[in-house]
């Protein structure tokens, strides 16, 4: 199957980039969002690649499989012949592949690994490591088949957290600190050009909590400063709107309601219910403020509901369809 065969589904219209970089503070669910987005973008017979770079095996855990090798493997199919593949990029493997591709030095590369040179090179220079990781992502994003058609319609990267995203994506600057010329520099420039083009969008995942929102604002500013396009802001785990227009919950009202429902109206129940409701209102006013701060980023904000049952494959599909429909 080739890239041009299926028509662009609605999801693709809402998510125009080809490379989707998903970041967020640790613990906000960015791996889940990245996986759901890869599923959504595979609708209508399209093919997507979900990539992780942090040696965390988060994708394997999410899809409940054994650890992913350094190889693109199908992890889900979608109706209409669509497919999601997944890849865990390992910097050592990426360097070996790079050597084989560009220098035809597979055996020499393996010898390098044997003496620990690759581990050494990727450890001592984290910038080099990031060039290799992003270089592999770029290769997958721009890869074409023998007819010159794109192999993947979209690539979704489960990227490092917001605290490190600027440095991770600003590969040219980091690599230039170490390599002022040579192939590493050339490679990093190619990656930088892709990341700064409209083909890329960096999506920021957050919860409606102070620290994740603050990191989201900081990351948006940092990325803009680097000329890297910010895509959408994705609010994860949003609570359903309750007690709308209510400012205070009285015990009298609760007692009346509980009695009407045939439930206990003893004082501990009424007071407990009131305290929980007031705490909800307090949190909601914080959330309203935080939503306002997120709006100031000036990018579309997508809200995903808290899924009470935890994340399984059905939940991923559900999140995916919400993402696909999001304007």
């Amino acid at each position: 199957m080739t890239a041009s065969a299926p028509s662009d589904g609605p999801a693709a219209n809402q998510w125009p980039a080809r490379l989707h970089v998903v970041t967020g503070k640790g613990g906000v669910g960015k791996t889940t969002v990245a996986a759901a987005l890869a599923l959504a973008l595979a609708a209508g017979g399209r093919r997507t690649l979900l990539v992780e770079v942090e040696d965390r095996q988060g994708i394997a855990q999410l899809f409940d499989r054994s650890p992913l090798p350094y190889e693109e493997r199908t992890i889900a199919t979608t109706p209409g012949g669509g497919e999601v593949k997944a890849l865990a990029v390992d910097p050592e493997e990426a360097l070996l592949e790079y050597l084989t591709l560009f220098y035809h030095l597979g055996a020499a590369g393996r010898a390098l690994r044997k003496v620990g040179a690759i581990d050494f090179a990727t450890t001592i220079a984290p910038g080099l490591r990031d060039v290799l990781l992003t270089g592999k992502v770029k290769e997958a994003t721009t890869r074409t088949d023998s007819q010159g058609k794109r192999v993947y319609h979209a690539v979704v990267l489960d990227a490092p957290p917001t605290g490190r995203i600027g440095r991770f994506l600003n590969v040219t600057a980091e690599a230039a600190k170490l390599a002022k010329m040579g192939p590493i520099k050339t490679q990093s420039e190619g990656v930088a050009a892709l990341l700064r083009s409209p083909m890329t969008a960096v999506h920021l995942v957050t919860l409606l909590e102070e620290m994740p929102v603050q990191e989201t604002l900081d990351a948006a500013q940092e990325l803009r400063g680097l000329g890297i396009p910010v895509g959408k802001v994705i609010v994860n785990g949003a609570h359903p709107p309750l007690l709308e227009g209510v400012r205070k919950v009285t015990q009298a009202e609760l007692r009346r309601g509980l009695a009407a429902a045939g439930l206990a109206t003893d004082r501990p129940t009424v007071v407990g219910l009131q305290e929980q409701a007031q705490a909800y209102l307090a949190r909601r006013s914080v959330e309203t403020e935080l939503r306002g701060e997120l709006d100031e980023i000036g990018r579309p904000v997508v809200e995903l509901p808290l899924l009470p049952g935890g994340i399984d494959f059905a939940a991923l599909r559900e999140i995916g369809s919400l993402l696909g429909a999001a304007a």
Partner: peptide
């Protein structure tokens, strides 16, 4: 939880209370 009432019973009661006491219904959903 500050009160001893299981989630399913709370949700069932909340549905019953629609139009009777919306505040209590939402407090039960919370």
């Amino acid at each position: 939880c500050l009160i001893d009432l299981d989630a399913d019973s709370a949700l069932a009661a909340a549905d019953e209370l629609a139009g009777v006491s919306d505040v209590t219904a939402d407090a039960l959903r919370i």
